[in-house]
């Protein structure tokens, strides 16, 4: 269908890297978001303070700045840490190299965890208090309350926000090519530079992202339908 000038496998591999990176960052930020939202709603003042500082700073600073900051500093910190470990026990020579994919996942997960925290905080608060009290009075332990009552209902309120965040993460993965990950943008860029058809190959990168957006829209619609089971809608 498209004339890829032999760069098809590279672009395909780049697309897979993009998907891998965004799904992994989604999982990391999802878990961080759950933790952050629980911290923000907890009775402990220190926890609330930490969560508030986290979300305020992360959401106030551009993601590219944070990405460069974390990506370059993380390796230095790790090196310092392993140096310190090595001085403690000089028999081993420990090295923890960080590849761009891992640091990309850590960075994106850390950044978007803050956005997920806000989404989940709103959703947690939308679940009626009486249901949680009823669950407790049934003798459920906190984890069981979370799994059976809070989480399934919270997801319904959180889904639109989650969908938004997912689309933003998907598009933010393009930034990771700046710090050297060979994702779809990098692959099409090098293909364009080699063949002098930059415009054409970048359009293909755009098409890949559009395709991923359309697919994720479909998946979101299905998920929304799943979590909306048993909800009565006002008929207009």
């Amino acid at each position: 269908m498209f004339d890829l000038a032999g760069y098809g496998p590279q672009i395909f591999a780049g697309t897979l890297t993009t998907i891998e990176l965004s799904v992994a960052s989604l999982i990391v930020s999802f878990l961080l978001g759950l933790l952050g939202a629980s911290a923000k709603l907890s009775k402990n003042r220190a926890l609330r303070g930490i969560a508030t500082v986290y979300t305020t700073i992360i959401r106030g600073v551009p993601d590219l700045v944070l990405m460069l900051l974390i990506f370059y500093s993380l390796q230095i910190w790790l090196n310092d840490f392993t140096d310190w470990l090595n001085t403690l026990q000089s028999r081993y020579d420990i090295e923890l190299p960080l590849d761009p994919l891992t640091s990309g996942i850590i960075t994106l997960g850390f950044i978007y965890g803050a956005y997920f925290t806000e989404t989940f905080r709103g959703a947690f608060q939308s679940v009626p208090k009486g249901q949680l009290e009823a669950a407790v009075s049934f003798g459920m332990r906190p984890l069981l309350v979370f799994r059976r009552i809070l989480f399934p209902q919270m997801m319904r309120y959180a889904l639109p926000g989650l969908g938004n965040n997912w689309q933003v993460i998907l598009k933010a993965t393009a930034l990771v090519s700046i710090i050297g990950l060979s994702d779809v943008v990098k692959a099409t860029q090098s293909a364009g530079e080699a063949t002098f058809r930059g415009f054409y190959f970048l359009c293909i990168a755009g098409l890949v992202y559009l395709f991923l957006t359309i697919i994720s829209n479909g998946v979101l619609l299905l998920l929304e339908r799943k979590y909306a089971i048993g909800v009565r809608r006002a008929s207009i």
Binding site: K171, A174, L175, S177, G198, F199, L202, G206, Y209, L210
Partner: peptide, 23 residues
């Protein structure tokens, strides 16, 4: 709006900055 919201800004910038100039 679909095209510009469905693709990353970085790709759009690259398209306009290096892509168009190569035409």
């Amino acid at each position: 709006t679909f095209l510009f919201r469905g693709t990353p800004l970085y790709v759009q910038l690259l398209l306009i900055y290096s892509g168009i100039y190569g035409l």
